[in-house]
Design a protein around this nucleic acid. Structure first.
Length: 573
RNA sequence: GCCCCCAUAGCGCAGCGGAUAGCGCGUCUGACUUCGGAUCAGAAGGUCGCAGGUUCGAAUCCUGCUGGGGGUACCA
């Protein structure tokens, strides 16, 4: 990455300046390279001279000049200058920028990739919504964040595994099964009122109707407990099938669907972990329950691992599941994507990790804030209890996958998201997904046109990139050269929204280039011909070839970024 | 009570301790006989919630306060 190269060059220059006596001896701090906002300050800036002013006992500007005087040459660098109060500004060379077209072509669609992961394994676990009904819009943000994060980490050198944790154990599942049973009885004409704690959603009526159609009245002719258990399995299968379908529509693929219940099978993970913890003296009996001694790991309290009833406690599944992830399946790193209402649980995870003898640094919890849905300016309240739910499928039907994915990625994770169904569906200026996709389609259109006008790829594939010197061309190239830094920032912060903003910026710069720079040989050719200057016509064709390479390269960068976001890159629209 | 998150232009939001705080929408004014006008250019619009502190330098870090959201159980 060019920024790191510059940091290395500066550190080297300081050492050389010290060796030459231009700077006094002092310990060299880490060199930070920033990005100036104002383009006239160049592409990169170092503030090191100001930091060194005190130890060097020199004016910041003089330090900066001494560093520049000893700066080794680098092919990417153009002008380098010192400016008050002591910044060193670096400008990328035009030739190097133009050469990025070739670098993009050679990257095989992987331009911008970096290597933070060094091939280590990283599991991203996301969605993991209770399988008690269709996925609703709250899960959509989770889905899109998790999936894009997976793409991003893969681009950053991690070996990514995507996992959906199926909460098919516990009391929620029990309540769900009871609700299905009651609805089933209702469908068959029996009086079976729901209780307050049961799921009120009408989707379960449909579910019960289907089950009644397939299985008849047979669940009425067996002990109620048996009926509930059997219905639980049937309903679970159907709900999961529905969830899988929705997930596919969102263009998400999970490598593994992990059953919570499997943790509690005889001889399963939970038993294994529990005995492991007991052997290590990490549990104790108190008030009839068994507690995990997280207080010895820095927590303000212990956690119940086995309730006095004999049932596993709240954190039992988390303990067994994460032990499985790290100690048994051996992921180097795990990221759990959770909604902000799990913040307390998230805060306790590091202590659980320590109690398990695992390094908490290997686990990241990505907390994101809620989604508020609006229609016609009115908030649509989601409430599972009342059964008022807007499903992902409904919104995708209305808005389309691309708008849903893009819009959900245009907020930072910890900002509340207001999602207006009408705006998203309007597909006008408000919809940024369309703006970005339009830019890609326009590039595709230009390349199609070139071929139609007898200028196919073979004729411009080796166009002379040194002709790319127009400010609009160079600005576009600068932005593309940024991609690896955007990927780095987004991967380090677990913040895919950086990519969504980058895509918009890039689209804007492409449109500016399109405005200022004619790509296809057209009127400019004719004008040159009228002036009886045949060589100029030839130059126009060469310039056109260079620009076609630039357009094709830009298109591939766009496809890449849209791919990381999980948004389609259409050839036309 | 305690803990976490949020507060930036009329509205919606970006912004890794750096230079004149940006983007979109909205408003106003403009741009197609030429590659996609689903586009582009220009203008107006800010005491970065308030008050202190750290720093050569703070929207960014620290403390306190105000306002909004969330979390705090042998419930999941």
């Amino acid at each position: 990455m060019i920024r790191n190269d510059i940091a290395d060059l500066v550190a080297q220059a300081i050492r050389d300046a010290q060796a030459a006596g231009a700077l006094p001896a002092f310990e060299i701090p880490a060199v930070e390279i920033g990005r100036p906002k104002d383009p006239k300050h160049g592409d990169y800036a170092a503030n090191i001279a100001m930091q060194l002013a005190r130890p060097a006992r020199m004016a910041p500007l003089a330090v900066a000049q001494a560093i520049i005087a000893h700066l080794p040459a680098h092919p990417a660098l153009g002008e380098v200058q010192a400016l008050p109060p002591g910044f060193i500004n670096f400008r990328l060379g035009d030739g190097w920028l133009a050469g990025q077209v070739a670098a993009i072509e050679a990257s095989g669609g992987q331009y911008g990739n970096i290597d933070l992961g060094h091939g280590r394994t990283c599991q991203v676990e996301f969605i993991s919504a209770n399988p008690t009904g269709p996925l609703h819009m709250g899960s959509a943000r989770n889905a899109v964040l998790g999936d894009s994060l997976g793409n991003l980490l893969a681009a950053a050198g991690w070996q990514v595994q995507r996992e959906y944790y199926v909460n098919d154990a516990g009391t929620q599942m029990r309540t769900f099964a009871e609700t299905v049973f009651l609805r089933y009885k209702q469908v068959l004409g029996l009086d079976a009122p729901l209780d307050k704690q049961h799921y009120q959603g009408t989707d379960i009526i449909d579910l019960a109707r289907t089950i009644a159609a397939e299985h008849g009245r047979r669940f009425l002719d067996m002990p109620e407990e048996d009926a509930i258990l059997e219905l639980r399995e049937i309903a679970l299968t159907k709900v999961l099938a529905n969830i899988r379908q929705t997930v596919e529509r969102l263009r998400i693929h999970f490598d593994c669907w992990y059953s919570e219940r499997s943790l509690y099978e005889p001889g399963g993970r939970f038993e294994h972990v529990l005995s492991h913890l007991r052997e290590n003296g990490m549990t104790t009996q108190r008030d009839g329950a068994e507690w995990l001694l997280t207080s010895t790991m820095g927590s303000d309290r212990d956690e119940v691992i086995v309730r006095s009833s004999g049932q596993p406690g709240y954190y039992a599944s988390d303990i067994a599941y994460h032990y499985d992830k790290f100690a048994l399946r051996g992921f180097d790193r795990v990221i759990d994507v959770w909604a902000v209402d799990h913040q307390n649980q998230a805060r306790r995870m590091p202590y659980l990790m320590r109690a398990l003898g695992l390094d908490p640094q290997r686990l990241d919890i990505l907390l994101y804030d809620i989604v508020r849905l609006y229609r016609d300016g009115q908030e649509v309240k989601l409430s599972k209890r009342s059964g008022n739910v807007i499903t992902i499928d409904e919104v995708v039907d209305e808005v389309g996958v691309d708008a849903v994915r893009f819009l959900l990625l245009t907020r930072s994770n910890q900002a509340v998201m207001d999602f207006d169904l009408n705006l998203a569906v309007a597909q006008k200026d408000e919809n940024r997904a369309f703006y970005v996709q339009y830019a890609h389609a326009r590039m595709a259109s230009i390349l199609r046109r070139a071929a139609e006008r007898g200028f196919p790829r073979e004729r411009w594939a080796d166009g002379n990139l040194d002709l790319l010197r127009h400010p609009a061309e160079l600005t576009l190239l600068r932005k593309m050269a940024d991609l690896s830094e955007v990927i780095e920032r987004a991967a380090l912060d677990l913040a895919p929204h950086n990519l969504a903003f980058y895509a918009q910026d890039l689209a804007k710069l492409f449109h500016a280039f399109y405005r200022d720079c004619r790509v296809l040989p057209g009127r400019e050719d004719d004008a040159a011909g009228e002036g009886a200057a045949a060589p100029e016509a030839e130059i126009a064709a060469e310039l056109s070839a260079a620009r076609l390479r630039l357009v094709a390269a830009t298109q591939s960068v766009f496809a890449r970024v849209l791919g990381l976001l999980g948004v389609a890159a259409p050839e036309s629209m």
